[in-house]
Design a protein around this nucleic acid. Structure first.
Lengths: 240, 240
DNA sequence: GGTTTATCTTTACGATGTAAAGATAAACCT
DNA sequence: AGGTTTATCTTTACATCGTAAAGATAAACC
C-alpha cells in the first residue's frame, strides 16, 4: 500500500531465536563472519515469531508474507516451503494464539473461590488476554483467512470451546463431550461466550470508549466489565 | 490473488441505476446505440450499489476498488474522483449500512408490547439484519479500513449507538445525550450491546454451528438467541 | 460560441501472493 | 570417504491491487 522500497536483506538473523535448537551450521567458518548461512535451521519457528512481532507492531493489515520474510531476514518466498500459503502461516499463528489462550483460561479457572467468582476470573482473563495481545485475538477471531481444516488450528480452537462449554455447563449433567446439550445449557454457553466475546470485540474496536468516557470517573474497561457481569449474574452477594 | 485477466469493459452499464436521476446525457445519439457515454451521470451511487453487490457476492476480501469499478463498468481509476480512497468508498458504504440498520432497529423498537418484549424484538432485528446482510455487517463492525472522521459515517454510527443507549437506559433518568451515565446504565448498555454483537459475530463466523448441532432438534440461530435472552432477563413471565 | 471545470480514461509504479526454476547444503547410504 | 538424494532457501516471473499523474471528453457556465 504505502510506498516503501524492498530495502535491506542482511540483518543479523540470529536475533530472536529464543531457545530453539541451534544446530552447528556454518561449521568451518572463521568466527565473527556474519555471512548468513543458506540453511536457517529453524526457519519455521523463526517465521512464526517474526509473524507475531509484525502482527503486534503493524496490525493485521501489515501481516504479509513478504513482511514476515523480511522480519526474519530471509527471501520473500522462503515461507512458502514451510506454510505453503499466507493462510497457512496465519492459521498456524492463530493455533499458537489459541493454545496460549487456553493456558491462560485454564489457569484462571483453577483459582480458588466460589463458582461465580471463578467464572468472573475467567471472564477477566479472557478480556485481559485480548487486551495484552490485540493482534493475536483479532487474528483468531476476525480473520476469514483461517483454515480450520488444519489439525493444529482445529484442535486448539476446539479445546478452547470445550473449556468454555465445560466450565459453563459444569454444574449441570454430563461433562459435555461430543454429547447433546439441553436448550438451557446451549443458551448458557452462547450467553457467556457472546457476552465476553462481544465485549472484547467492541473494546478492541474502540466502540466502548464513548461509554467509558460518559461513565463515572475512574471507570476502566476492566471495571465496566465487572459491573456488566455483576448485573448479568444477579445472585452474586451484594457485599463482594 | 487469483489469476484472472482484467477482461471486458463494455457492459450495458445502465443496469442497476434504480431510481437515481437519469440526466439526459448521450443527447443526440441514435437510439439503440449502446456506446457507453464518457460521463456516467450518477457514478457515485452506481459505484456504491456495485460495491454492495461485490461485497455480498465475493465477501470482504473481494471488495477491491478495481472490482467495484469493473462491476460498474468503468475504468479502474474512476472511483478515485468520487471517493479518493478505498477507505473512502468503504466508509461511505458502511454509512449506508448503518443508516439502514438504524431504520430497521427503530422499526423493531416501535412495535407494541411490554418493554421487555420490545427489547427482544430489537435484539432479533439486530441479528436478523446481520444475517440478511452479512457482508454489510462485517464491513460495519470488523473493518479497520473505516474512516470515522467522515461525517456521514460518524453520524450514522453515532445514531446507531444513541438508539441503543436510549432504548436500554430508557426507564432510567435522563434521556442520554452528551450526558453522563451511571455505572449501572453504562453496564446495562455494554451488556446489551456485547451480548447481541457477540452473538452476531460468533454466528457469522460459524462459531455457533457446533453449539447448534448439539442442541435439541429444531433449534435455530433465532431460537437459540431467544433462549439466551430469556435466560438473561429472568424477570420475564415464565408463561410467555 | 468559447472558456472553464468536473468527470472519466490511460499510463505508470511499488507492493503483494504465488508459482516455477535454480542454488546450496544437509542427510543418507553404501 | 565419496557420491547421491532430498530438504531448504533464493531468483525470477507474473497477475493483481492501490494510488498518483497526465491526458481525453463533455457538461456547465457566461
Amino acid at each position: 500500500m504505502t510506498t516503501k522500497t524492498e530495502q535491506v536483506r542482511a540483518q543479523p538473523r540470529r536475533a530472536a531465536a529464543s531457545g530453539v535448537r541451534a544446530r552447528p551450521r556454518t561449521a568451518g567458518r572463521p568466527a565473527g563472519e556474519a555471512a548468513t548461512p543458506y540453511h536457517h535451521g529453524a526457519l519455521r519457528d523463526a517465521l512464526l515469531e517474526a509473524a507475531e512481532r509484525v502482527l503486534e507492531r503493524d496490525g493485521l493489515a501489515g501481516l504479509t508474507l513478504r513482511a514476515v520474510a523480511r522480519e526474519a531476514g530471509v527471501s520473500h518466498a522462503a515461507p512458502t516451503h514451510h506454510f505453503k500459503d499466507l493462510t497457512g502461516l496465519v492459521s498456524e499463528l492463530a493455533a499458537i494464539g489459541f493454545t496460549r489462550f487456553n493456558v491462560a483460561m485454564k489457569a484462571a479457572g483453577e483459582q480458588p473461590g466460589t463458582p461465580i467468582e471463578r467464572a468472573m476470573a475467567r471472564a477477566h482473563a479472557y478480556v485481559a488476554y485480548a487486551q495484552a495481545n490485540p493482534g493475536m485475538y483479532g487474528l483468531m477471531f476476525r480473520t476469514e483467512r483461517l483454515d480450520y481444516s488444519r489439525p493444529s488450528l482445529h484442535d486448539a480452537a476446539e479445546a478452547s470451546f470445550a473449556g468454555l462449554a465445560g466450565s459453563v455447563a459444569a454444574r449441570s449433567e454430563g461433562q459435555a463431550g461430543g454429547e447433546q446439550l439441553s436448550i438451557d445449557q446451549a443458551a448458557a454457553i452462547a450467553r457467556a461466550w457472546s457476552l465476553v466475546h462481544g465485549y472484547t470485540m467492541l473494546l478492541l474496536d474502540g466502540r466502548l470508549t464513548d461509554i467509558l468516557r460518559r461513565s463515572p470517573a475512574g471507570t476502566t474497561a476492566d471495571s465496566l466489565l465487572d459491573a456488566m457481569l455483576r448485573a448479568t449474574v444477579p445472585k452474586l452477594p451484594p457485599g463482594a
